[in-house]
């Protein structure tokens, strides 16, 4: 393994994060605070509790997941797309490093950044609501697995994208709706039966459900299924990455 190269990419990407600190960290935190104000205070005032948990606390795992997914995908996709766009990718491709090392560098940095923001949001939310975390180890496991999986997805999007529009397309049109409809702000049991069935086709439901379970011990779906779902998704992303690596798709002519 070319650890120096992985380190170089990781340090370089993290430096970008800190250079653009306002847009990297301040803006997701600000938008989360806005969610708290709008959903927690305005709506939460009318919904007293969901499954025995105060509404303000109930939405915290969903809000963290919303930001975690968006950040992991956008950071990883931008991280690899930008060198492609400006042409500096030549250096990565001519360096004595394998595709796996490139992936570890970019995905590692994107996942780290997404996790940092998730933890900041978690800390921020304690200012608004009382939180309990029943299964902290599982909480961290869900966070890390989700961050890594979606950073991998972002990396694939970044390799695939031919322009900035395509880069924004999937996060905007697929991931955000899935998170909103995946039970971020409500329990699936609150939906009419038909919608409950449909929601079970939404993969993000399993992430949010499992993550919420690690906080409060309540879940929309059994936690084992949540873990299986995230594992399958991770495996799927790794397979696509492996195929890209094998074929040099969109990278080497």
């Amino acid at each position: 393994m070319n650890w120096q190269a992985i380190r170089a990419i990781y340090v370089f990407e993290m430096a970008r994060t800190f250079r653009t600190i306002a847009q990297s960290i301040v803006s997701p935190v600000l938008s989360t605070v806005l969610y708290f104000v709008v959903f927690g205070a305005a709506i939460g005032g009318r919904i007293e509790s969901v499954e025995g948990i105060s509404y303000g606390a109930f939405i915290v795992p969903g809000l963290i997941m919303l930001t975690l997914l968006q950040q992991a995908v956008t950071n990883a996709s931008f991280g690899i797309y930008f060198p492609k766009f400006i042409g500096t990718i030549y250096e990565l491709l001519s360096a004595p490093m394998s595709f796996v090392e490139i992936v570890i560098g970019y995905v590692g940095a994107a996942a780290t950044k997404a996790l940092m923001i998730a933890l900041i949001i978690l800390a921020t939310s304690t200012l608004f609501v009382d939180l309990q975390i029943l299964h902290p180890v599982w909480m961290v496991t869900f966070l890390v697995l989700t961050a890594v999986s979606f950073a991998l997805l972002g990396f694939i999007i970044g390799i695939w994208a031919g322009n900035f529009e395509q880069l924004q397309l999937i996060p905007l049109l697929i991931i955000t709706p899935l998170v909103f409809l995946g039970g971020s702000f409500y329990s699936v049991s609150m939906l009419p039966p038909a919608w409950q069935t449909i929601t079970h086709f939404n993969p993000v439901l399993y992430l949010i459900s499992g993550f919420r379970w690690s906080f409060f011990g309540v879940a929309d779906v059994p936690v084992g299924i949540s873990i299986a779902a995230i594992t399958v998704f991770l495996a799927l992303c790794l397979t696509v990455i492996w195929l890209i690596f094998r074929t040099g798709w969109r990278l080497r002519q």
Binding site: A5, A8, I9, F12, T88, E91
Partner: peptide, 25 residues
Amino acid sequence: PQEITIEPFEKVIATTRFSRGLFGK
């Protein structure tokens, strides 16, 4: 390379350091 392809927002030293690392040094 023929084209001037360079990270626009990085400092000269950082971009040079990055290259060295990529090549495993």
